[in-house]
């Protein structure tokens, strides 16, 4: 499949390069490629390489020592826990929202789609702030929570809530255009032939959306594990208790423990690379380009 994809890619560009009307002089082409690659190297490749180079600067032993240190391990465990709660919740929501929006007509559909995108346009810091205003000591439910000895802010539930908020649209945004493009005929046929709603979903809808769904979940997970601003506001930065991996990076960095900070950051960079690999695989399977980075598609009109 790899070779076929490569030829497909080359053929797409060649369509323009062989046509005299859509071809630029060689020096223009050369300069544009040079500019683009220089920009790419400076702003994308260099930061990525730097994370790994700095992480291994003091050698493998220091690298692994930084990762098995108790605070780092508890940050890894907490990050996994938060993602394990936030991602499935947003997955179920994404499927429900896409089913309602893509398979039915109703008034206010456009408004609902816009509202689902809302968390993308809110600063992560404000995403954290809203939960402090609700559940903090001075917040709406603060006195009640203190009375009943429930901690949300500066504790794990706050981290989970803030993470759910910032990753809220990911799965829905991926599924809505996909399910709209696929229409309703196949599901309607299944129902008419006597399948139940669940059977129709599992056997007809799910097989045709599984790659887009996988990509949405992967992207949602990357953001859930990597979120910094929102969790920073609600975490309270209690070492070994409420520090996720990105917050651990910040603490180590501010203590001038650069090798350890970059070692922890390299885990996050690996997660990013894995996400991009899965994205590429999903695209090649689906052939048609996905809503890459979905945020870039923003609100569908």
């Amino acid at each position: 499949m790899g070779a076929a994809v490569a030829t497909h890619w080359a053929a797409r560009a060649r369509r323009f390069e062989v046509n005299a009307a859509t071809r630029e002089p060689a020096w223009v082409k050369g300069s544009l490629i040079t500019i683009a690659l220089a920009f790419f190297g400076l702003f994308l490749l260099l930061p990525l390489v730097t994370v790994f180079a700095e992480a291994f600067r003091k050698g493998w032993q220091v690298y692994f020592a930084a990762l098995v240190e108790p605070d780092a391990l508890s940050a890894i465990a907490l990050t996994l826990l938060v993602a394990a709660i936030a991602v499935p919740l947003n997955l179920v929501f994404g499927i429900a929202a896409a089913w309602a929006i893509a398979k039915f007509d109703f008034r206010g559909k456009q408004l609902l789609t816009t509202l689902i995108d809302l968390p993308f346009s809110v600063s992560p810091v404000i995403a954290g702030l809203i939960f402090v205003l609700l559940f903090g000591a001075q917040g709406w439910f603060g006195p009640w929570l203190i009375e009943h000895d429930v901690k949300i802010i500066f504790a794990v539930p706050g981290l989970v809530l803030a993470t759910i908020f910032v990753t809220f649209p990911f799965v829905a945004r991926e599924l809505i255009p996909l399910m709209e493009a696929q229409g309703r005929e196949e599901e309607e046929a299944a129902i008419v032939l006597g399948a139940s709603g669940w059977q129709t979903f599992w056997r007809v809808t799910l097989p045709s959306i599984k790659w887009g769904l996988l990509y949405g979940v992967i992207l949602c997970n990357a953001r859930a594990m990597g979120e910094f601003g929102a969790v920073s506001v609600v975490s309270g930065h209690i070492r070994g208790r409420t520090n996720t991996l990105p917050l651990q990076v910040e603490i180590l960095y501010n203590e001038y423990n650069f090798a350890a900070a970059f070692a922890v950051a390299s885990l996050l960079a690996l997660l990013a690379l894995l996400t991009l690999v899965v994205k590429s695989l999903v695209e090649w399977r689906g052939r048609q380009p996905l809503n890459v980075g979905q945020e870039s598609q923003g609100v569908s009109a």
Binding site: V5, A6, W9, A10, R12, A13, R14, F16, E17, T22, K29, L32, I33, A36, L37, F40, L44, L45, P47, L48, T50, V51, E54, L219, A222, M225, G226, E227, F228, G229, L245, P246, L247, V249, E250, Y253, F258, A261, F262, A265, S266, L268, A269, L271, A272, L273, T275, L276, V277, K279, S280, V292, G293, E295, S296
Partner: peptide, 30 residues
Amino acid sequence: LVRYHFPGKRIVDALVDLPFALPTAGAGIA
């Protein structure tokens, strides 16, 4: 990316999304 063919284009194209995928704290310290 659309008009020209050059070696490594697929990798360059895939890495364009890096800022979406790379956690911001990692990008910041790098």
